[in-house]
Design a protein around this nucleic acid. Structure first.
Lengths: 120, 120
DNA sequence: TGAACATATGAACAATCATTCATATGAAAG
DNA sequence: CTTTCATATGAATGATTGTTCATATGTTCA
């Protein structure tokens, strides 16, 4: 009894074992895969991307972002929390207001890669 | 009457005009923004990312991917169409079977950037 | 032509999500 | 303390999404 996965379909059976072993090796573990798709899911909403673009220019407080994008404070706050959960933005409190900023440079790199693909 | 956008909130009013102009300039146009978020949305599902990883190893036919991931042919076919819509994969027919492959190298770059962020 | 196989597709359904509304928390100023 | 302002949050809702099921399209071979 082996732990080899077998695929039996079409009439292609020659190199399957090799390919299966390759794929199994290259696939990230469950947790990493979850984090990865969760990260991209967060990028997959135009409101959140607009927020990130706003933060490219400067750190901003919640109500400024809301005013800038013409959306409610609540909507922006909810989305900022989502962005913070995947560590794309960080926050800093100063009296009553909370300033949000990009967490690191991965954000720009990832968005630019996406743009490159979209614009090609 | 100017076409200047004004933000009036918090008590922060000093540099707002400048920042607003910067953000307005840097934001991609509506269509590009839509394509960009649509692209990332497609990356934001673990089934689709698994398919892409499978294709990292080799081009594959639909039923092989389905067998490899333990999912139905229909589910995989639907997702392959989504991947094709944003030009992440391409297809090639050979008789009855259709082989799918990565469209270009952006896929790997984008996923690797995501992984780098997730693993940091 | 007809049967068999690989893939594609439309409709339906459960699950997930973005936004809104109402309200709570937290901080400064009177 | 109370009021005011900035932000956060929970519940509700309409919209979107991934998967399934049934079936259609397209190809090969007899």
């Amino acid at each position: 009894m082996t732990d080899r996965i077998t695929v039996d379909c079409c009439e292609e059976t020659e190199t399957h074992q090799d390919i299966l072993r390759q794929v199994a090796k290259s696939l990230p573990d469950e947790d990493t895969l979850y984090d990865l798709t969760e990260l991209f899911r967060i990028f997959g909403d135009s409101t959140r991307v607009r927020i990130l673009y706003a933060l490219f220019a400067s750190e901003m407080c919640v109500c400024d972002i809301a005013a800038l994008l013409g959306m409610t404070q609540s909507a922006i706050s909810h989305q900022l929390r989502a962005l913070k959960n995947v560590r794309l933005v960080k926050s800093r409190r100063e009296g009553k207001t909370v300033f949000y900023a990009l967490a690191d440079d991965h954000v720009k790199t990832i968005i630019n890669q996406g743009l490159e693909h979209v614009r090609e």
